[in-house]
Design a protein around this nucleic acid. Structure first.
Lengths: 337, 337
DNA sequence: TTGTACGCGTTATCAA
DNA sequence: TTGATAACGCGTACAA
């Protein structure tokens, strides 16, 4: 690793001049020396030392992507196709802008914050924060923050959120179910916070607008931990006969349920209709193919990164960005009369 | 961000003392001042500036995970469940060891190397390198490198590889197919390099050992790019009737094929048997559930990271680590006579 | 046991 | 147009 100092010595000039050439401060250096330096740089394959640069400039060119893992969910957050596609979108955008991404997965907000300050991260993208996590973060960290899928009212005051019209998406698909003659529709999820709450609200609203009543027992709770999922799935299967359709809060759950139904000889959509939310690979590859709500997950990641980049360059961004959804009708809903 | 200097000033002592306390050099500092400093550190929530530390120590505490994207495959590498689970395993291991992970996705080896040297990355995990990529890397970069699933003979000379007994796994499942009476077995993949070559070799060997001949046309080539995949899948479907079974090089392809067969009214396993490789979520959730070869992808990531960590602490590691596979028999193979 | 002084590689300020 | 020099925050050899 050759340094500027060394280069300057070998070229018999000052580090300033070399540095100026590197940064293309054309006005400050004669075309002649510029050429000489540039050639030399190429020859020795000069690569700047980012630590030194960061120290001198008090910045880092790093954007942190902090994923807060829910302890009760997967052992491996990246198992979820949603998460990985999201990361892909963020990474690509950040890289193209000349920044670097540091991925940090943790269920401990404090740990995330310590990490972010040691590295002097220039900006932060937060995913999976619930309730007041975000506020705690923003008290410590005074640089730009963009959230993904965060719905806490407090959080929204402090930073911009990139989300989805979850409520509308849920409303649309439940409404579609109703238009196909369904009136006994259950909702399946593992919690009632954040995104899941928004989708639950859309579901309830659609029922209400159609004059269908909702009661607590229409909420089918799945427990995703590997040692519990089988049991909770069995419970759900038993209660399935009370309904003509089930709206699952995600494709992953919908497809999981579909498989379980198939194993038990329950035929979809003949015996019961099932719909999901996300439109990911699972929904597309499964047979029968899943009727679901489409969202562009990669775009979500790209948008979040773009928004942060804008803030980094001093631009204002809206407080709330909502990406659209649309219905994807495939083969898991039957018209009933 | 408070600095050591500032702390020393406020406490009326030298930076050395503060630094010594931070690094737990117990012998060098009296219990009294130690306590005083420790309390103060906690109070002001001191966080070291990593850039400065790295500069002073000429290290970075960063481990780079470089994924070489194949331009002809997905638009988004992280779409592949294999890749994302792998990343999860690496990240977790690295984080638990007090290191940080920097993810870098690129199809340009030179770009990866520039990135790695600017950040003065302490060690490197490489995935997706084919042929001589690895050698080019190792010429520039003199710190520990661990490869994942790299089979180039040249590469193996230079650094340790964490792989799988791909050949054996392929041999086992093709052998299973043969034991079920199949003799017309096709191989489906998108290339014949690296891992795919190893699996192809296992497949051919199993055929050979059973006295079944192989010809070029038994290689069914899939083209995974989104604008080509439909066409190539159609071609494959047409040729499917020549075979009683198809061994797909990955679960992703196997499940993709399964869906396509279903759409065309070809019944699996009644009309044709299909097997995959990986045993990922797709294989488990699809119905009929896929008969496949299991590999522990997360363990692969964990092992790669562990191996690198060992090298970082000066230990020797074997040149080649091969993780085992095992057969998972589910519902996509029919016994024929 | 504690303090001083310097080096790490870069950028920035100011003078020449 | 160029060069000397200070500063960024930390670790550490060496002196006290």
């Amino acid at each position: 690793m050759i340094t500027i100092k060394e280069i300057a010595k070998q070229l018999n000039m000052s580090t300033t001049t070399v540095s100026n050439v590197i940064h293309g401060k054309a006005g400050e250096v004669s075309g002649d020396t510029r050429k000489k330096v540039e050639e030399f740089l190429k020859k020795v394959d000069y690569v700047p030392n980012i630590s030194a640069r960061n120290l001198a400039q008090n910045q880092s060119k790093i954007i942190g992507l902090a994923l807060k893992a829910r302890a009760d969910k997967y052992e491996n957050l990246l198992m979820d196709p949603f998460v990985s596609v999201l990361i892909g979108g963020v990474e690509e955008t950040i890289r193209n802008a000349g920044y670097f991404m540091m991925l940090y997965i943790s269920s401990d907000t404090g740990e995330i914050m310590r990490h972010v300050s040691t590295w002097n991260v220039d900006g932060l993208i937060l995913f999976g924060m619930l309730d007041d996590d975000g506020i705690r973060v923003s008290e410590k960290y005074k640089k730009p923050i963009v959230c993904i899928d965060t719905y806490s009212i407090e959080g929204l005051k402090h930073f911009t959120n990139v989300g989805l019209d979850d409520e509308q998406g849920a409303y649309d698909i439940v409404n579609y179910l109703i238009s196909q003659g369904h009136r006994k529709i259950a909702f399946l999820s593992d919690n009632t916070k954040g995104v899941d709450l928004a989708r639950l609200t859309g579901y309830k609203q659609a029922l209400k607008d159609a004059g269908i009543s909702y009661s607590e027992k229409d909420f089918l709770k799945i427990r995703p931990k590997s040692d519990e999922i089988d049991k909770s799935l069995d419970e759900i299967c038993k209660r399935a006969s009370d309904y003509t359709a089930i709206f699952c809060v995600s494709d992953l759950y919908a497809v999981t349920l579909l498989s379980r139904f198939e194993d038990r000889g329950i035929s979809v959509p003949d015996d019961i209709s099932v719909v999901g939310f996300d439109d990911n690979m699972l929904a597309q590859l499964h047979r029968p193919a899943l009727t679901t709500v489409h969202q562009d997950v990669k775009l979500k990641g790209v948008t979040a990164a773009d928004t942060l980049l804008k803030q980094l360059s001093g631009k204002k961004t809206p407080n709330q960005i909502k990406l659209p959804t649309h219905l994807v009708i495939r083969d898991t809903v039957r018209r009933i009369d």
